[in-house]
């Protein structure tokens, strides 16, 4: 009994509530529907055998952003709105264990989402294509990118008690990080470097071409972890300042 069991119980509870409500099914279904259309247009109709090319499309990232902001919007905002935050804070468990549990639950849904897209390489293989190491690289990139997006969404959800505002806020932040890479080259010099550094999508497309880069992985993981830490701090701080 302790920290870890708290994390697992929060994880279990949150995952259950995703799959007991229509939430997870709608998100998974819609995501599969839209990504299948993309798969058809980018891969099948052009007879392109590399899935990487599809993952690399900006529109795919945009869809991810949209779905993840919906997936994460209620995570913390709902606790505040329903007053269940009190239960969490008056029980002998740490805020960080809750946040990690919640993060893992959303990440679990995301992993299910990713697993479903494995049908695409399957289809490619049926059509005599090859499952390449680039695809594995692409999937690793996708999983890392997803963890960042979920951490952003969770952070935004902790900022407000309104789910819609949380969704919009996280969408805006993710969208900014998404387009900032395209602006990067406009400035040149240090500014470009900084913007490229900030741009999640730039990193993501780099990784999703199938190249394993250690610094990219470290980048995504450290962004995720620091966002989770900031989320915990935001929640603690609010409690201390206003109650």
């Amino acid at each position: 009994m302790g920290y870890l069991s708290n994390v697992t119980s929060v994880f279990k509870k949150e995952t259950k509530s995703y799959f007991y409500s229509p939430m997870a099914y709608i998100i998974l279904g819609l995501f599969m529907f839209i990504s299948s259309i993309l798969f058809y247009f980018f891969n099948l109709s052009n007879s392109i055998g590399t899935l990487v090319w599809m993952f690399n499309q900006p529109i795919f990232a945009l869809i991810l952003i949209m779905f993840i902001s919906i997936l994460t919007m209620r995570m913390y905002a709902e606790e505040r709105k329903n007053g269940t935050e009190v239960l969490l804070f008056t029980s002998p468990s740490k805020v960080s264990s809750l946040i990690i549990g919640k993060f893992l639950a959303a990440y679990f849904v995301f992993i299910v989402m990713t697993l479903l897209t494995l049908t695409y390489p399957l289809v490619i293989m049926i059509f005599k294509g090859k499952f390449t190491i680039q695809m594995v690289g692409g999937y690793v990139g996708l999983l890392l990118f997803g963890s960042c997006l979920i951490a952003i969404g969770l952070f935004c959800s902790a900022l407000t008690e309104n789910q819609i505002i949380a969704a919009i806020l996280s969408f805006i932040i993710m969208f900014f990080l998404f387009i900032v890479g395209s602006f990067a080259t406009m400035f040149g010099g240090a500014v470009t470097e900084i913007l490229k550094w900030v741009s999640l999508f730039y990193r993501y497309s780099d990784q999703s071409t199938g190249i394993f880069r250690l610094n990219t992985m470290v980048y995504f993981i450290s962004i995720t972890v620091s966002l989770l830490v900031i989320t915990v701090l935001v929640i603690e701080k609010r409690r201390w300042s206003q109650g």
Binding site: N6, K13, G83
Partner: peptide, 19 residues
């Protein structure tokens, strides 16, 4: 502080976890 989408037993056993 209730979670509306849980059954009573689920909820209370979650509380057990938290406590």
């Amino acid at each position: 502080p209730l979670y509306m989408d849980m059954t009573v037993r689920e909820y209370l056993s979650y509380v057990c976890d938290l406590k």
